[in-house]
Design a protein around this nucleic acid. Sequence first.
RNA 1: CGGGGUGUGGCGCAGUUGGCUAGCGCGCCGCGUUUGGGACGCGGAGGUCGAAGGUUCAAGUCCUUUCACCCCGACCA
Length: 415
Amino acid sequence: MKLSKLFTKTIKNPPADETAKNAKLLIQAGYIHKEMAGVYAYLPLGLRVVEKIKNIVREEMNAIDGQELIMTNLQPKDLWETTSRWDDEVVDVWFKTKLKDDSEVGLAWSHEEPIMRMAEKYISSYKDLPASVYQFQTKLRNELRAKSGIMRGREFLMKDMYSMHASAEDLDEYYEKVKVAYQKIYQRLGIGDDTYVTFASGGAFTKFSHEFQTICEAGEDVLYVNREQNIAVNEEVLEEAIKEFGIKRDQLEKVKSAEVGNIFNFGADKSETMDISFTDQDGSSKPIHLASYGIGITRVMGVLAEKLADEKGIVWPENVAPYRVVICALGDEPEVTKQADELYDKLVSSKVEVLYDDRDLRPGQKFSDADLLGIPYRLVVSKKNLDSGKIEIKKRTETEPKILDIDDILEVLVA
RNA sequence: CGGGGUGUGGCGCAGUUGGCUAGCGCGCCGCGUUUGGGACGCGGAGGUCGAAGGUUCAAGUCCUUUCACCCCGACCA
């Protein structure tokens, strides 16, 4: 992609109507556009990041036999009445609207009830279990107050997976597999070392749920962690957890964190409430055991932007960066342009995702933008290095560039 | 939803106790000179000052209502 052709451009001043670092940076660099409070558009660069994150999640879900599907954003009232969750008193984040015939529909804030209705249709025998399905879907939640940029919006992209099992034991076994898969995901996203499985409140169905919390100053949660023992407890259940698990409080460090994933074991409750069952081996009718597993895709993107940024801008992990490398061509001498063009063509044909800053700008502006955008590698083509035939390469996370042959650069970038 | 703050070209801002054609920086368009960390000259375009109503000879500035955005709290499967 040539920067001169990119739909977006960077802006020199961050927007005044944002305080959250993630939103300031992402807007300034042209990754997202704020449509209204808590509602953001994902621009060409931003969409590439979203897709990178989705693909990592997708690979790990597929690896544990998750099957991708996509549910609907419009949801019928009667479905949610089966669990008494249509009522605004019970669920206060509903967006609701009406069809032309005046019947009410809800806009998806969760897909737990819809997945169970589908289970009713496709799960009738123990032979149909276990089953695990997931989707990437836009969730709409009428939050009283949106905040923290894309970390807590009214419209956001979420991966939600649901697993259904014939027994509690089978569910537990799968639940542990998902935990491991999640840890792999956060590792690949570059925040593995600061992400903890934590005990959190379990809501209506279970005493504790498990949250995946990433240490992050901008987060909304407070965590008590023991890094050596890899224990983390959400503040909201600290006292209970200490009692229940015999954790020593003075060995816990208090940190701020952001929830990047949440998994729930519903047990058989949902199935019983909705009166959905399957026929077991012995011919008896039994409820389906259900668990749900969520990852806020756009929230994770916000956490990455927020947590890994430095004073110059975003610093994307290599696995999620919209492009792997940016070429800065300095000056407009024909030889420089020629070498930069050739380098660009070579990288493109080697399947390296490359941004080419071919704009007629001064070096400082190109460097600043390369930093702001957070592209992992920067190549500089200028008359300075022209004669040697070598190219300058610098990582976003380092300050000193290296001068390498084109072949060596390709080796670094294609890897 | 309670409390606090802010709305002036695309972005960031200034605008005295109401007073004349509403300014500045960036960005944008044209021409030229520039090119290793956000250059410069010359010439341009772009704003019913969030909206509605009111006070006044006169409103960006005062009053009322309203909308939007941000922060704190509450809330958060």
